[in-house]
């Protein structure tokens, strides 16, 4: 089985935030939560670059290590999911995560946090696949439908790649090669043929 990965090509990302909106609308995410966000550096200056980020679905994920109820788990294909009904909203996963992926809906009694919410790689959750409960709690299960996550599917510049890690790497490697760098630097293929 493949290993699911995200990869954002910063040479292509144009900071349109389409991925953020697609994820939020398509998965009916609680108010105040964005599972995906776009980081822009050197905004408004030459060399401005953007990067779309969400849960990285880490190998040896720190959130899984710290969860006091062990409600976060990793599937065989590397996707990290969690059980919202077991979650106690303690926030430890948020503190352990280097990427700020786990988020918490506010607005309960005493301003208490609800259950954690994060990117599911559009793979739903522990509930029965395609059940109404799964859609309500976790959003769509596009992986079970054989599709890429919403964010990557709608990305206009195809900057955000998602899927089997080796395929994603191949696509990116080919792009970098065509764009030209290293041995494929500008002009070389014209000058030397082969």
């Amino acid at each position: 089985m493949g290993r699911m990965k995200f990869l954002c090509d910063v040479e292509r990302c144009i900071d349109c935030k389409g991925c953020v909106v697609a994820c939020k609308e398509g998965n009916h995410i609680p108010v105040g939560i964005n599972r995906r966000r776009v980081i822009t550096i050197d905004s408004g200056k030459p060399g401005e670059k953007s990067l779309s980020v969400a849960c990285m679905h880490c190998s040896d994920a720190p959130c899984i290590a710290v969860c006091p109820v062990d409600c976060i788990y990793q599937r065989d294909d590397g996707i990290v999911l969690h059980d919202k009904e077991a979650c106690i909203g303690c926030g430890y996963c948020f503190m352990a995560c280097p990427f700020g992926a786990p988020q918490f809906p506010a607005g309960q009694v005493f301003g208490a946090r609800g259950a954690m919410d994060k990117c599911t790689f559009c793979a739903g959750g522990p509930e029965k696949t395609f059940s109404a409960k799964e859609i309500k709690l976790y959003g769509q299960n596009r992986i079970a439908e054989g599709k890429v996550p919403l964010c990557a599917g709608m990305c206009a510049t195809k900057s955000l790649l998602a899927g089997d890690g080796s395929v994603v790497s191949d696509v990116y490697r080919e792009r970098v090669f065509k764009r030209g760098s290293g041995a494929n630097a500008w002009g070389r293929s014209k000058a030397y043929k082969e």
Partner: peptide, 23 residues
């Protein structure tokens, strides 16, 4: 209850416990 949330089953019970903890 938060520390030993796992044997207690987690979920709403512990979330309620956290509210009581705060109050």
């Amino acid at each position: 209850m938060v520390i030993f949330a796992k044997p207690l089953g987690g979920g709403t019970l512990i979330m309620g416990g956290r509210v009581v903890h705060n109050a």
